[in-house]
Design a protein around this nucleic acid. Structure first.
Lengths: 231, 231
DNA sequence: GGGAATTCCTGATGCAGATCAGTTTTTCGT
DNA sequence: ACGAAAAACTGATCTGCATCAGGAATTCCC
């Protein structure tokens, strides 16, 4: 029986997006004919908060962060690995401008799909609409977990969360070379880069992880999970 | 031209829910036949995090809070006034248990709609599906704003946000009798009740609001808005 | 209506983590 | 390969808010 109170705070959504599989070959072609592929280099801005939305984007390859920014502070809402959609909230015409910006962590390949075409398919294919609903619901749950984490856990719990997420969900292995800087981790965890460094160092000293520059290995999942849970 | 960087952090969604208007009289009857109305008294739990979802709920009258709780900390996700839906993320079968709890702030009347029926309507009525998508998108944007607020604004900004939200969106007047305790405000703003009291007192001293027990009047919207923006 | 129980309020103290002010190491451009 | 710029790291200080501890005012309820 899964624990009902466990609040995970992963930075990525758990939903396996399979929205295009549900389309007939004709509709897939319809989408394809109204798509373009664009490559972004590391650190390039993919979309900018406040600008008009004309496309929904599908990350084909790479990794991006989605964030909001008021000029003074910035908050990373999530990170999106390949296979996921970006800009889906704008499927609702109420949000015809981006509510957030996105930036490539790595060289990233994106498929831009005309939003009008996307809306047409939602209107005529209930299974597709259903999948959109599932993705939006999943996003809601994910952002909620992250919200809880950043407001109620403290530095060790947050860092444990991020390490677990990176290892389990993004790289899917215990050892990985992290393409993110300490500053990136700071943004993700909502703390200062100094605190990130100190926290990681403590984890290293305590034998929870092994860390050499950008190379990380998770040594003790069990203990990390406990830290994540207790905050 | 609206400001693209302004992050409002209202506790309620801006979306005017009109999901039932889109249904044909027959479908409305279909829904009606599969609905029940339930009354909750002040402080009663409406739904409990972790339990199975069998209904989607529509607040017909009253006011409720939606929150998550890990036993140690609690976080209010939003407050829902009448005319809004509760439990909509569970339209996705992935989330067959409540991700949050809800509690009535006031005596509240709720219409429970069989979730299977709701799903059938989404499947056969594209306009209805579209409305569900709009609501989910709107929820996403709202929670995001609140997330930013609670992680990056400090006590004065948060309190200003809440007062503006209560006045503009909930009570729709500058003077109101607040049914929430200081402790409730503390939960909403993610701070301690002591800090709430001190912050409100400062606003009162500075002439931004007038406060006598549970009676509030907003005196200076302009200045409150500035405080909300600058954090 | 009177005593108990909440809620409201106030001042004192503590602390997690931001900020500041550096030094060292790595990365990058030419 | 070398110098500059960026990132990583370290210690010292500062601060906003939580927490604690208690008192005053309301509300609740037999």
């Amino acid at each position: 029986m899964p624990n009902s109170t466990g609040t995970t705070s992963c930075t990525i959504s758990s939903h396996q997006c399979r929205c295009f599989e549900l389309l007939s070959p004709e509709d897939q072609k319809f989408l394809e004919d109204n798509s373009v592929r664009v490559r972004y280099k590391k650190k390039e801005i993919i979309c900018k908060q406040g600008s008009f939305v004309s496309h929904i984007m599908h990350i084909e390859k790479g990794l991006a962060k989605v964030f909001i920014d008021n000029g003074k502070n910035m908050l990373v809402l999530k990170i999106i690995p390949s296979g996921n959609l970006l800009g889906l909230t704008s499927i609702s015409e109420e949000f015809n401008t981006y509510q957030y910006s996105a930036m490539a962590y790595l060289d990233t390949e994106i498929r831009q799909i005309d939003i009008a075409v996307f809306r047409i398919l939602v209107g005529r294919n209930p299974a597709f609409a259903r999948e959109v609903i599932d993705i939006l619901s999943s996003n809601n749950v994910q952002i909620t977990g992250r919200f809880f984490c950043l407001t109620h856990k403290q530095s060790f719990g947050r860092m444990a969360d991020i390490l677990l997420c990176l290892s389990d969900r993004i790289f899917k292995t215990a050892e990985f070379e992290l393409p993110l800087s300490r500053q990136d981790l700071a943004e993700l965890s909502g703390m200062s880069s100094e605190t990130v460094i100190r926290t990681l160092k403590k984890f290293d000293e305590d034998g929870l992880i092994r860390m050499e520059g950008k190379n990380f290995s998770v040594l003790d999942y069990e203990r990390l999970r406990r830290i994540s849970e207790t905050g």
